[in-house]
């Protein structure tokens, strides 16, 4: 099944009336309905604590790792037309198709090569030629190949922060995900590394759909096609990025964007 919006853009996934409760009872999401378009970048903005990460992490069932968390509502993945929050859905299968890059680079205590190979090995790939090929492709896709091709066996921790984050992107890319989730991927990086990652994300959208959390409004304006503004667990407004930043329809959005608030 293919879902489209009024501009004939294909929806890759969408949340419907998504509520989320942490184990301590905190309701972090309230009836959030938001589409993620295919081959587009959707940015989530909003003040700290408004539920951006919580929303993002619902897409790969990250909350399942902690007992007591509860989802209510749907996240539908197309073309399967499956609610990936359904208890009958295997979170591992979801994570195989929707990968994630975290706020702080979190490479594994392994070589550069093995970091990128990880997802493939998890999927049972052990053919050295296939691995070599996929790893080169992923590192190139993450614009890291030229910097590391001569030291693939070095420990990943020896890379700079920006390189580590690109390594994490390569790691996520290696398994050909359909959606990539980014949770403030540049907040721990210097301005040059940030520009690198931003360019990288823009180049990735030919291949996949991106949902990114950022607290940096300029970043959302620079790279995203769609922007959603969240506040206190609710989705206030979402639209084309240009519209959100020039003529938002809600007063709260305008206040946030113009810096009157937040």
């Amino acid at each position: 099944m293919v879902a489209k919006n009024k501009h004939n853009e294909i929806i890759k996934a969408e949340s419907r009336d998504l509520n989320f409760f942490y184990a301590d009872g905190t309701q972090a999401l309230k009836n959030v309905s938001l589409p993620v378009y295919e081959n587009k970048i959707t940015a989530l903005i909003g003040p700290s604590g408004c539920g951006k990460s919580t929303f993002l992490r619902s897409f790969n069932r990250m909350h399942d790792l902690y007992p007591g968390n509860r989802y209510d509502g749907q996240i539908i993945l197309y073309p399967d037309n499956t609610n990936i929050l359904d208890p009958k859905v295997d979170p591992i299968e979801v994570r195989m198709r929707i990968s994630m890059v975290f706020q702080k680079p979190n490479p594994f205590p392994k070589s550069i090569y093995e970091n990128v190979a990880y997802g493939l090995r998890v999927r049972g790939e052990s053919n050295a030629r296939v691995l070599d090929e996929k790893i080169e492709e992923a590192l190139k896709g993450a614009s890291l190949w030229d910097e590391v091709k001569d030291r693939l066996q070095d420990l990943a921790f020896n890379l700079s922060g920006g390189q580590q984050q690109r390594l994490c992107i390569a790691r996520a890319l290696a398994t050909d995900p359909e959606i990539m989730l980014f949770d403030e991927p540049t907040s721990a990086l210097d301005p040059i590394a940030t520009v690198n990652i931003e360019e990288l994300m823009s180049s990735l959208k030919d291949k996949l759909s991106i949902l990114i959390v950022t607290h940096n409004m300029q970043q959302a304006a620079r790279i995203s096609d769609y922007t959603a503004y969240m506040y206190l667990g609710e989705l206030v407004e979402h639209d084309k990025t240009g519209t959100i930043f020039t003529k938002p329809s809600k007063k709260e959005t305008e206040d946030y964007i113009t810096g009157k608030f937040g």
């Binding site: 790792l65 990968s99 975290f102 990880y118 998890v122």
Partner: peptide, 23 residues
Amino acid sequence: AMREGAYAMGATRFQTAIRVITP
């Protein structure tokens, strides 16, 4: 964060424990 990184790649608990946490 290390564990989340492994799970996010689609690893099972066992794969996470053996290939990431142990090293």
